[in-house]
Design a protein around this nucleic acid. Structure first.
Lengths: 348, 348
DNA sequence: TTGAAAGCGCTAACAC
DNA sequence: GTGTTAGCGCTTTCAA
């Protein structure tokens, strides 16, 4: 029965008004008289008309399309970010184009260009590296980026609004907690160097160490992005004679890797080794002992990023805004008093 | 320096060819002479031209946009599905619009209509219920759905290609394993009734019970969608005097809830209660004891769904295809011999 | 193999 | 408040 889908012209002619009026009813850009409005609404219902966003995207200045780039959607931290942003986008009538960078700046660039080719209104990115997005904006024939908000990483990148946690404070709190329990040899496990947020977690921990007169007692271990290589890296460290009495894992995947490594080596947590993780998600609450962790306010990340993006879309140019959100140390069961060091035991 | 972004006309005029030729170079729809091709390519490079997909979407028949609907992206099962599909989409030059239904059929419908308004070429959906997508396709002025593939649920829905696991076999294997260990009272924990894949997991378990002469010994517990309500539901069951000696958790979230409940009640796994989970993800490997589980081939779900969609986009009408993939029982440490029933102990 | 021209469905000037 | 109209940038007949 239905031939083509009805267009705005069909609606207009059935309602006995002009296409402009019909259009204005559909997306209240300009006021419309009550009588016209009612007949347009009736025509829309009768015909089953639906706005074709492809067409309005081409003609109008807004596509109501926002791009989102994450390193890896299977990481619950990024998935939660997507979840939060998607809900906000729906509320405000936007659709989300989601792409994955696989932690690769080159791929990220390609994916962003694909998004730009869709004429997205804005962009929310957890960049693969701190400066990767700045690189996309530069160059001879660089993609002209729409307003973009960076989450979690790239906090200092010029030209972008950013949302990130107070990682220094988070690292400081975690290390202080461990030091307070008597730990003197702390391994810090992370996936990657040269990421500002990671550097700051380390810096915070270092600050606590220095304050306690333990300068240089931390060892930073870089384990790469996947669980197994992280586990391998920390396992190696735990095998040493002077192995650490505590691990500070700088991401949720690092925490998982640390736990697996400890388990694999038959080390009791926390009596043999204490663990402080990062982030706080459901699966952590199935572990026993419950994981002591530095929680990031991931829902607030999403809402702050969305707010910043909407602000910039409506307000246009203004100074770059940087939102810093607090971390919370959640002390649970995976941290306890440091065991006597092996050396000390031997000497005794 | 750059005014507007260069269009295909700019490219054509700089290359000294018609826009048609330029277009044909960009998206090899028709053969182009070598000389023209080279000058067009040169012009594209010189100008930094980029195809505007908004425009080609409007004019052409394909948008190279695919919609994906999942109940909840923070569930690692769905996130993995998205991850797999996104990689394939990128490979084939498609972009993914991802929306969340929150397990709500009405919201799902709204979100799908938003996707259809974008003229998506195709749709991949984990539907909120088995018939929710059929409902979207029906009705007086129903959204004209593009080719759609259903994953995980809605296996019998008419008019859709589907990809799902052999849940009956999965349920059967899990139950047989428990029965073999001497379990006679098995609680089955699930989030929702009236989902065919869930019903089949139950049916498979029932079949194993019947075979063992234990008809009607299972108890099915419906705990809702969130972790805490699931935990509450199974905890209630574990509190009973005639509490089950084993739990078969029908999703990964149900497994998490079961573990939390057992831990909360100070029940040892598996000596007090055995647990079989569903799905197999990283966090499960941080648990001790390691979880016995029915793994679904989630990567294969994604690739089968994508293959089906691409097939239908190129081939058009043909019979509906249904792909059923095998589950694998992974026996680990969370299942063990049934403890003597309390009643039996009392009688002794 | 190529070019000219007609729109895709809509929005935004601009007129009234 | 409303109508008329000119395109957005592209793909695709149709004709050469």
């Amino acid at each position: 029965m239905a031939g083509r889908a009805p267009t705005i012209r069909d609606v207009a002619s059935r309602a006995g008004v002009s296409v402009a009026t019909a259009s204005n009813v559909v997306n209240g850009n300009r006021p419309v008289g009550e009588a016209s409005r009612r007949s347009v609404v009736a025509a829309i219902a009768a015909l089953g008309y639906r706005l074709d966003r492809s067409a309005s995207a081409l003609r109008g200045k807004s596509t109501r399309l926002v791009g989102m780039v994450v390193p890896d959607i299977t990481n619950v931290f990024f998935a939660s970010l997507v979840h939060g942003v998607e809900a906000l986008a729906e509320r405000d009538g936007y659709d989300l184009l989601i792409v994955s960078s696989s932690e690769d700046a080159a791929k990220e660039r390609r994916r962003v260009e694909a998004l730009v080719a869709r004429r997205i209104d804005g962009l929310i990115v957890v960049p693969a590296s701190d400066d990767s997005m700045a690189a996309v904006g530069g160059g001879a024939h660089a993609a002209r980026l729409p307003p973009a908000v960076l989450i979690d990483r790239g906090a200092g990148a010029p030209g972008f609004d950013t949302v990130h946690a107070d990682c220094d404070a988070g690292g400081y709190a975690a290390a202080r907690h461990l030091i307070g329990l008597g730990h003197r040899d702390i391994a810090i496990l992370t996936h990657s160097k040269r990421l500002e947020n990671i550097e700051q977690r380390i810096a915070g921990a270092r600050r606590a160490l220095v304050e306690a007169g333990l300068e240089g007692r931390e060892r930073v271990i870089y384990g790469g992005h996947d669980l197994e290589s992280l586990r391998g890296a920390i396992e190696l460290e735990l095998h040493r004679a002077d192995c650490p009495t505590a691990i500070f894992a700088l991401t949720n995947v690092c925490a998982l890797a640390s736990i697996k490594a400890a388990r694999g080596l038959n080390l009791e947590i926390p009596s043999d080794v204490s663990i402080v993780g990062f982030d706080d998600f459901d699966w952590m609450l199935a572990l026993r002992p419950y994981l002591t962790t530095v929680a990031q306010p991931v829902e607030d990340f999403a809402s702050a990023a969305w707010r910043l993006l909407m602000l910039r879309l409506s307000a246009g140019e203004k100074g770059v805004e940087r939102v810093e959100l607090p971390c919370t140390l959640r002390v649970r069961e995976s941290t306890g008093p440091a065991r006597p060091r092996l050396k000390a035991v031997a000497e005794a």
